[in-house]
Design a protein around this nucleic acid. Sequence first.
DNA 1: TATGGTTGTAATCGATAAGATTACATCAAA
DNA 2: TTTGATGTAATCTTATCGATTACAACCATA
Lengths: 141, 141
Amino acid sequence: MQISSRFTVAVHTLLVIHTFKDQKTTSDFIAASVQVNPVIIRRTLLSLKAAGMVEVRAGSGGASIVRDLSDITLYDVYRAVECVDGDLFHFHENPNPACPVGRNIHAVLDCHLADAQRAMENELKKVTLLDITRELQTKLN
Amino acid sequence: MQISSRFTVAVHTLLVIHTFKDQKTTSDFIAASVQVNPVIIRRTLLSLKAAGMVEVRAGSGGASIVRDLSDITLYDVYRAVECVDGDLFHFHENPNPACPVGRNIHAVLDCHLADAQRAMENELKKVTLLDITRELQTKLN
DNA sequence: TATGGTTGTAATCGATAAGATTACATCAAA
DNA sequence: TTTGATGTAATCTTATCGATTACAACCATA
């Protein structure tokens, strides 16, 4: 199983808003670049808005980024749109407490899973949208 | 979306086989500890066998670990049972090449996603089954 | 203020994947 | 040969994602 594309869609969305900040970046416009349904983009924007990253103009249309790009990490975007209830690894629900292994499996495994998840998240925290937009600019030249 | 429970089920399975190595660890026996259907355990064992970690006695029943515990990392188990085609993050399929963002989104994002995935996997590589069994033994005392 | 384009949001659909379960052929040892 | 396991296919349920349709609410502007 994979982490859903909501994350990459959200990053793409933010990059479009930034790149075309002089135009009206409607959900249809963004959807044309991402090539997903506009409703997906609207839902993505709702999540990003809830996280305080963008503002969306209902009625007139368009979205803008309202936080400094250097203050938005990939991790922030990941958390804003991904439905992770906190745990990356799904644990089987009912290990048998009557068994010494079942009774202790969580105690011996949880910390290692948390370490792995944290390592992944820390990597995402290292990269800001500013970094990404600069890399994008380099590609465009 | 989460990584499936196949991974934690597989680790649990290996721990049961090791902990009860003096008994006949059938799929029913293991399933009773994990509390999943025995067929799930049999499929898990098939994967672990394909990865050269266990041998399973068809007919007579039971499974054994056939590699040194210090030579089996959590990452090995993860790869053996998890259907990851390689990528942890699912990328939206068709970014629009006619858009400067769509055309370059992979170029600017892929390496960061790979870094994050690698960081997670490296953490899993640090932990061996020997470590886990020792921690389990500590809990049991 | 009437219009038209846009957002917010619900509802439905199809696809995919996981795990549960049933069934049974195959196998190996007693 | 009987008995208890494994190997494996098939089916079912459930959950989630993304696509899609539909429409009310919204707002700038003509």
